[in-house]
Design a protein around this nucleic acid. Structure first.
Lengths: 145, 145
DNA sequence: CTCTATGCAAATCTTTTGCACGAAC
DNA sequence: GTTCGTGCAAAAGATTTGCATAGAG
């Protein structure tokens, strides 16, 4: 019943997946994937662009956006919106939720199990299928309250 | 233990609250409150501006933003961010969560009870105090799946 | 050689801000 | 009369798009 975990374990896996769809393995994609695989934190498109540009200064941010979009479609990357700020992206790893602190902006990842009960209740009572990759709860973290 | 429900039942209640803080009861505020009280749906600042401007065409959208900000601070209005779109605002009514459909964009309000269990679990296990006015879960609604 | 991806610039959309004037108290 | 609120215009931040060209297959 659970949807499968991402089947892309390496950068070349992803690029192979893109080629199957008629896409191409470009240096910009390789670099962006390198940055995404190197560190699984939640980063904005601008952050990611900065890290890619440290390696290849003329990769444009519009290329970053276009490729992130593509990776999200492929299921390689999750996009999560926190509050009003920019979207954040991270490698689609184990299903998890996000606790976003309104005060310090910090993000805590919490395992999926915590949300199972809620997700089931929503399914049963409202016929609503929660997207478990996008769970984000706003509030105050332990440090800030 | 539960924080109190909003103590502003009418437009004049709110304006009185503003005066206590050294603020003023202006026509623009009265109109915006009128629009907010008339219909408790979730609307963007632009939507609200449109409805106010139908009554007073030269109320500027920056005034709408400034007043919404003020109302949020006062606890009169809740601001909720859905996905990447514009923030939505609605009168701070009974505590509730939001189910946002990724497909049709519809918003379903669900009573707070559904989230109590999760909020308690987050508090106990992570020391995280969830903001119950901002609960928003993304997924697919009953109609769209 | 073909067609996709990229760089660059400009456009779009949402929200915020500076400033001078008008209005509430 | 003060001080706060407003309109207007401009700025700011995030993201998207058009177009000509470079480059992957």
């Amino acid at each position: 019943m659970l949807p499968p975990e991402s089947s892309f374990a390496t950068i070349d896996d992803v690029l192979a997946g893109m080629r199957q769809r008629g896409g191409r393995a470009t240096p910009a994609r390789r670099l962006l994937l390198g940055v995404l695989f190197r560190d699984r934190q939640h980063r904005s498109a601008e952050d990611l662009a900065g890290e890619v540009q440290a390696l290849a200064p003329d990769v444009n941010i519009s290329t970053i956006y276009r490729n992130l979009e593509e990776f999200v479609r492929l299921g390689v990357v999750d996009r999560v919106y926190f509050g009003g700020g920019p979207a954040t992206y991270h490698l689609s790893s184990g299903r998890h939720g996000h606790l976003v602190c309104d005060s310090c902006g910090g993000v805590t990842e919490v395992p999926d199990e915590v949300f199972v009960e809620l997700a089931d209740a929503l399914a049963v009572r409202y016929g609503f299928i929660a997207d478990r990759h996008q769970f984000a709860v706003a509030g105050l973290c332990a440090d800030c309250r």
